[in-house]
């Protein structure tokens, strides 16, 4: 596990491309994976959980989530620019934070996990 973590940051950064379309109030995440994940790719609730656990957003943050399993694209559509900007900011550090949290946890520091709050899996 420790060995994986060393390369995880870069792997995430390289695999996930975030594109913002301010005009449409939309953020797209394009995921490149070694194999096509099909219906294992993601569901909207998982996206919300990810943004909550690693991005610090509430799980009921207002946005519409559309998943394209074939293209492995996640579309986040917002009702306001402010909301879009909040998520955009969270996405700037989310991959590094997810690995940091995992790393802390493996080292026996569970304070990060305690701060996550309730997660509705």
């Amino acid at each position: 596990m420790e060995k994986i973590i060393l390369s995880l940051r870069n792997m995430l950064k390289e695999a996930i491309k975030v594109e913002t379309y301010e005009k449409n109030l939309e953020i797209n995440m394009l995921v490149k994976s070694n194999t096509k994940l099909g219906n294992d790719f993601a569901d909207p609730n998982e996206i919300k959980i990810m943004l909550h656990m690693f991005g610090g957003l509430n799980q009921d943050f207002p946005m519409e989530i559309k998943i394209d399993e074939d293209q492995q694209i996640i579309r986040l559509i917002f009702g306001s620019l402010d909301n879009m900007n909040i998520v955009q900011k969270a996405l700037e550090t989310i991959w590094a934070k997810s690995v940091d949290l995992l790393e802390q946890c493996i080292a026996g520091d569970f304070s990060g996990i305690r701060n996550i709050g309730d997660v509705d899996d």
């Binding site: 792997m11 695999a15 994976s33 070694n34 294992d40 790719f41 993601a42 996206i47 690693f54 492995q72």
Partner: peptide, 16 residues
Amino acid sequence: KKLRIPFRWILDEIVT
């Protein structure tokens, strides 16, 4: 294990 995303996007279920 079924990994959480984003980990599932880059790692397989048996990596750990």
